[in-house]
Computed example of a mutant assay.
Amino acid sequence: MALRNRPVRREKPLPDADVHSQGFRQTREARRSALVEDYVELIADLIEDGNEARQVDIAARLGVAQPTVAKMLTRLCTEGLVSRKPYRGVFLTEAGRKVAEESRIRHQTVEAFLRSLGVSAETARIDAEGIEHHVSAETLEAFRKAMTAAR
C-alpha cells in the first residue's frame, strides 16, 4: 500500500504565525550572513597562515571565480569589514576581525560537538561549515555543556 499521498499526521498544532515565522526569518538571515562570514573567516585564516589574502587565493579556496570574489570584496569593503590596497592583498578591519573570530569560535564549537558524537573529522569539518551559520547562541551553549558533561 503506497503512503505517498497520505497526509502526515501532526503531533502538535501549528504554532502562532508570528512564532512560526521567527524560525524562517532566522534562517533567511543566517543565509545572508553565511557568505560574508565565510569570506571574512577565510581572509583571517590566510593572513594568519602568514600569507596575504589575495583575490586569486580566496577564489581558489572557495571554489568560485575571481569576478565573484571581486564582487564580494566590494560588498565587504562597503560594510566596513575589509580594506584593499592596490597591488596588495585584502586586510580585515577591526569589525572584520571580530566577525571572523566569532565565526571561528562557532565553527570550532560545532565541529568539536560533532566529533564528540563520533562523526569523522572530515565530515565534522564539512558539516560545521554549514551548521555554524544557523546555530543559535543557546544551542552553542548546550553543545558546550554537553561536551563538558561527557568528559
Score class of each variant (00 low, 15 high):
residue 124 A to D: 03
residue 129 E to Y: 04
residue 55 Q to W: 01
residue 122 E to H: 10
residue 44 A to Y: 12
residue 28 R to A: 10
residue 37 E to D: 14
residue 64 V to R: 09
residue 111 E to A: 15
residue 151 R to K: 13
residue 42 L to C: 05
residue 68 T to V: 13
residue 54 R to V: 04
residue 124 A to M: 04
residue 133 H to P: 04
residue 16 D to Y: 04
residue 106 R to G: 00
residue 80 G to Y: 06
residue 77 C to F: 06
residue 111 E to T: 07
residue 37 E to I: 01
residue 19 V to A: 07
residue 88 R to A: 15
residue 12 K to W: 14
residue 83 S to N: 07
residue 3 L to W: 11
residue 35 L to D: 04
residue 85 K to Y: 11
residue 46 L to H: 06
residue 132 E to A: 12
residue 67 P to V: 09
residue 27 T to M: 14
residue 30 A to H: 00
residue 46 L to I: 06
residue 81 L to R: 00
residue 132 E to S: 10
residue 113 F to A: 11
residue 69 V to P: 00
residue 49 D to Q: 13
residue 141 E to Y: 06
residue 130 G to W: 02
residue 118 G to S: 04
residue 63 G to P: 15
residue 17 A to K: 03
residue 24 F to N: 09
residue 27 T to R: 06
residue 54 R to Y: 08
residue 120 S to L: 03
residue 98 K to N: 10
residue 64 V to M: 14
residue 24 F to H: 13
residue 126 I to P: 02
residue 134 H to Q: 06
residue 89 G to I: 01
residue 114 L to T: 03
residue 57 D to F: 05
residue 5 N to D: 11
residue 93 T to D: 14
residue 52 E to A: 06
residue 137 A to F: 12
residue 114 L to D: 04
residue 53 A to M: 01
residue 71 K to I: 03
residue 107 H to F: 13
residue 86 P to I: 15
residue 18 D to E: 06
residue 76 L to E: 02
residue 39 Y to N: 01
residue 142 A to C: 03
residue 64 V to E: 09
residue 120 S to G: 06
residue 108 Q to Y: 02
residue 106 R to H: 04
residue 86 P to W: 07
residue 123 T to K: 15
residue 112 A to Y: 00
residue 12 K to L: 12
residue 109 T to K: 05
residue 116 S to N: 09
residue 119 V to N: 10
residue 37 E to C: 07
residue 101 E to M: 06
residue 149 A to W: 00
residue 55 Q to F: 01
residue 5 N to W: 08
residue 58 I to S: 01
residue 137 A to R: 15
residue 61 R to L: 13
residue 83 S to I: 08
residue 20 H to F: 11
residue 2 A to I: 11
residue 58 I to G: 00
residue 132 E to F: 05
residue 122 E to Y: 01
residue 51 N to D: 12
residue 5 N to K: 08
residue 75 R to T: 09
residue 35 L to W: 02
residue 61 R to W: 11
residue 49 D to M: 07
residue 73 L to Q: 01
residue 116 S to A: 13
residue 70 A to R: 02
residue 73 L to T: 00
residue 87 Y to R: 09
residue 77 C to K: 13
residue 128 A to C: 08
residue 141 E to D: 09
residue 122 E to A: 12
residue 9 R to C: 05
residue 139 T to Q: 11
residue 86 P to A: 08
residue 146 A to V: 03
residue 86 P to F: 14
residue 61 R to S: 12
residue 5 N to F: 08
residue 103 S to D: 04
residue 31 R to V: 10
residue 58 I to R: 00
residue 54 R to T: 11
residue 145 K to L: 08
residue 66 Q to H: 11
residue 117 L to D: 10
